[in-house]
Design a protein around this nucleic acid. Structure first.
Length: 759
DNA sequence: TACCGTACTTAGAAAAACGTAT
DNA sequence: ATACGTTTTTCTAAGTACGGTA
């Protein structure tokens, strides 16, 4: 039920947004084919057109739908071709953002800047400046050194140092020992207060390399298939049928999902059945010709029973499993990268199963095949102990590419894309990048006014492509839309972002709900999450949209002369390191900061402040359209809360009644005792009222959060230093905001931001 | 400049772990 | 102890972006 996103049905409005993607999907489903054909048309058309229109039409594949339109477009474009060039030059000139091209070449768009970036100095307190500058030679090593590999590691370290020294043009310096305070740190699960490595106080590589030394144990493979016991039967057309192990394994994948909505979907069933048949013996293939006649019920029950049994295991058994998992984690869950032991994010190879694409995915149900050592590419340093493939097997390849961060990769069979094993977010390599991301966003902050002025100006451009670019950018900025790369037709669900919006995704209203020039957005974005929003826009934008939509079919691209690559190229010229997604980061972070300022009341207590924080967080989540399916238990927990509220209400009216009668009583008796009784009852009423209010606030809060996911923005869009600074400023323990994992990921921010950090 | 492959970030669901009430 | 609800962790799909190539 979740994978198919039909739950979107129930998603409610966030503000003016309504969620209802299921209906939408249906809508799009109808269109799918049409759209497809259409694109083909476009393609065909494209090749027909000669060089004269290459400028326009080749910009974007599947653009030009009708020749008529083409003429229209071409006309305007050709006319302004040279102008265009001029403009570009101008733009280039303008972009004297003092950026260092060199860094770009290095693949470090901005982080290494730390040093050279004026903004940094500007924003950081002196204390931090220091760390930013990375007093490099500060002999500071010490950290981890797990006992086991200690010596070996030391050797390696030396080796590495040596290397570095030999490499002239490699700046990064290696960690050395600071003050000789050798921590005996081990990850060994022991509670030893391991000295944390502050990678953020060290220099970064500026040559585009990601590491000097990398050693790991390779991936953990999925456990081999265990056939179901023979008493667990599969029936075809009512008759028991014994399946070959291969066919049986795939059957179990389906059987396990019987309760899932996926198995009711035609595409899923069709894809599954097709792939399942490929695994069958010829006899099986001959017999099993109709999925509807397959009865997996016993298998399904068996797996349910298994998981019940697992739950019911004794403490000891559970502990045993836990320990075994811990062992595997210790062995495979870490790697050594440049002197430090770092946690690997996903060291387990994805097990085989049925592909669970999101939304209306054309490939859902396909068999995701088992990954074998022969599929695996290992990446590690030459001078490391290479991981060993399981006995009797070989790796596909072992390479030593320090320009990338992954340790293991393989090609997945559904989309043919590459999957990677990489490090944990707490690792240096991820952390640096994350930090860098926020620094880029902060640089945008310092020039966003200029940029906004520019795109507003471009709304008036004589060139269509510039207007489109400017309007798209406006959407990205104002609405935090994603860039919207084009996607391969038929390979994925039909979802869009800004540049790939189609005419059918917006509606224009000259006047709506008392507002002028309203644009109604309604489309499926990433993960087929519906984006629905009504926004009043500037008249010029409105007029431009009308122009863009002229003579187009609903399934034509709105921005037919724009794609993400054009847009990003433009952005790059405006600011070094600027891409469409930086706007999301920037707008998310700046919104948090501003909302925190607005919502935090100094004299409120901690819970109230935290509520404010969550509200600020929620504002960002709404901006970024981060939704979730209402938790399964939502209704129930809401009900429970409501029961509590009702009970409270009853209690309150009881208390009130008592108060009333006490008052009456007092009136009659007119003695001290009864007066006191009245006071007591009054107090009781007040207390209960308060409690009731609290509960109601809690309910509101929960309700507000029903389909809003705060996690994504917290983890990916909000500069953690804003939160850290806020906590410090108001004396809120950081644990109230970030859990353990989050604190690990944001260790750099927690360490470096003080209360006056400004994004 | 379209196109493709690659690398890496972002995303919500599902599973597992945890805490608490019964 | 068990059931139950909540929080955290895991999982992997789905994006963005970019560079090389023809």
């Amino acid at each position: 039920m979740s994978g198919d996103h039909s739950h979107n049905d129930d998603r409610i409005d966030c503000g003016s947004r309504v969620n209802d993607s299921h209906k939408h999907k249906d809508k799009y489903k109808d269109k799918e084919h049409k759209h497809k054909d259409h694109k083909k048309d476009k393609e065909r058309e494209k090749s027909k057109h000669g060089s004269s229109d290459h400028k326009d039409s080749s910009d974007k594949k599947h653009r030009d739908k009708e020749r008529e339109k083409m003429k229209h477009k071409d006309g305007s474009t050709d006319k302004h071709k040279h102008k265009d060039k001029e403009k570009r030059k101008e733009e280039k000139m303008k972009s004297i953002d003092g950026k260092i091209k060199k860094e770009k070449e290095n693949g470090f768009a901005s982080p290494p800047h730390m040093k050279s970036e004026p903004e940094d100095d500007f924003y950081h307190s002196p204390k931090h400046e220091k760390s930013l500058k990375r007093e490099r030679d500060d002999d500071n090593d010490s950290e981890f050194k797990p006992k086991k590999i200690k010596t070996e590691n030391d050797k390696k370290a030396k080796k590495r140092k040596q290397q570095d020294d030999d490499d002239e043009d490699i700046k990064p310096k290696k960690t050395k020992n600071k003050k000789g305070e050798v921590t005996d740190g081990k990850k060994k699960g022991k509670k030893e207060p391991e000295e944390k490595w502050k990678w953020w106080e060290e220099e970064r590589y500026t040559d585009g390399s990601k590491w000097r030394f990398l050693e790991h144990k390779g991936p953990v493979f999925a456990p081999p298939y265990e056939p179901v016991p023979s008493n667990v039967k599969f029936y075809y057309d009512g008759k028991h049928m014994r399946l070959s192990p291969q066919a049986e394994e795939v059957a179990t994948f389906f059987a396990k999902m019987l309760d899932h909505d996926y198995t009711t979907k035609d595409i899923f069933r069709k894809n599954f059945f097709k792939d399942w048949r490929k695994e069958m013996t010829s006899e099986e293939k001959a017999t099993i010709t109709d999925l509807k006649k397959c009865n997996f019920a016993e298998m399904n029950e068996y797996f349910k029973a298994q998981s019940e049994a697992r739950k019911a295991m004794s403490k000891e058994e559970k502990l045993k499993i836990k320990e075994e998992n811990e062992r595997i984690l210790q062995e495979y869950g870490f790697c050594i990268m440049d002197n430090h032991k770092e946690r690997i994010a996903n060291f387990r190879i994805e097990p085989p199963g049925l592909f669970r694409g999101r939304g209306d995915h054309p490939k859902m149900g396909m068999l995701k095949r088992r990954i074998r050592p022969e599929d695996i590419i290992i990446n590690c340093s030459k001078d490391s102990k290479h991981p060993k493939p399981p006995p009797g097997t070989k790796w596909k390849e072992v390479r030593h590419d320090n320009k990338v961060t992954w340790l293991v990769s393989w090609t997945e069979n559904i989309q043919g894309s590459i999957k990677y094993i990489m490090l944990n977010p707490s690792s240096r390599i991820k952390g640096e990048k994350d930090w860098q991301k926020y620094e880029t966003a902060r640089r945008l902050k310092s020039c966003v006014d200029r940029l906004r002025a520019q795109y507003r100006d471009d709304w008036k451009s004589k060139e269509m492509r510039i207007r489109q670019r400017a309007v798209a950018l406006y959407f990205i900025d104002k609405l935090a839309l994603r860039a919207g790369n084009e996607k391969e037709e038929g390979e994925t669900a039909d979802t869009v972002g800004c540049c790939s919006l189609r005419v059918e995704h917006i509606k224009l209203y000259p006047e709506k709900d008392g507002q002028e020039y309203v644009v109604e957005f309604d489309f499926l974005g990433k993960d087929s999450i519906r984006y629905y929003n009504k926004v009043p826009v500037e008249k010029r934008v409105y007029k431009n949209l009308q122009l863009f939509m002229e003579n187009k079919e609903p399934d034509d691209d709105l921005f037919d002369r724009l794609n993400t690559s054009i847009l990003n190229k433009h952005l790059q010229e405006l600011m070094d390191g600027l891409t469409a997604k930086v706007f999301r980061t920037y707008n998310a972070s700046i919104t948090l900061q501003q909302q925190l300022k607005e919502l935090t009341s100094p004299d409120e207590n901690i819970p109230a402040k935290i509520l404010s924080y969550n509200r600020a967080n929620r504002a960002v989540a709404i901006l970024c359209n981060h939704q979730r399916a209402p938790p399964k238990t939502f209704e129930k927990s809401m009900q429970n809360l409501q029961t509590k509220i009702d009970a409270k209400k009853d209690q309150l009216s009881d208390a009130r009644r008592e108060l009333k009668s006490a008052k009456a009583d007092a009136k009659v008796r007119r003695d001290e005792k009864s007066k006191k009784a009245v006071e007591t009852k009054k107090k009781a009423v007040q207390r209960i009222e308060e409690q009731l209010m609290k509960l109601e606030v809690q309910a509101t809060d929960r309700e507000e959060n029903k389909q809003i996911a705060l996690g994504t923005s917290k983890l990916n869009y909000l500069d953690p230093r804003i939160s850290v600074a806020w906590c410090k400023k108001w004396g809120i323990p950081i644990e109230k905001i970030y859990n353990k994992t989050q604190r690990e990921k944001f260790a750099w921010a927690i360490d470096m931001a003080d209360e006056d950090f400004e994004f």
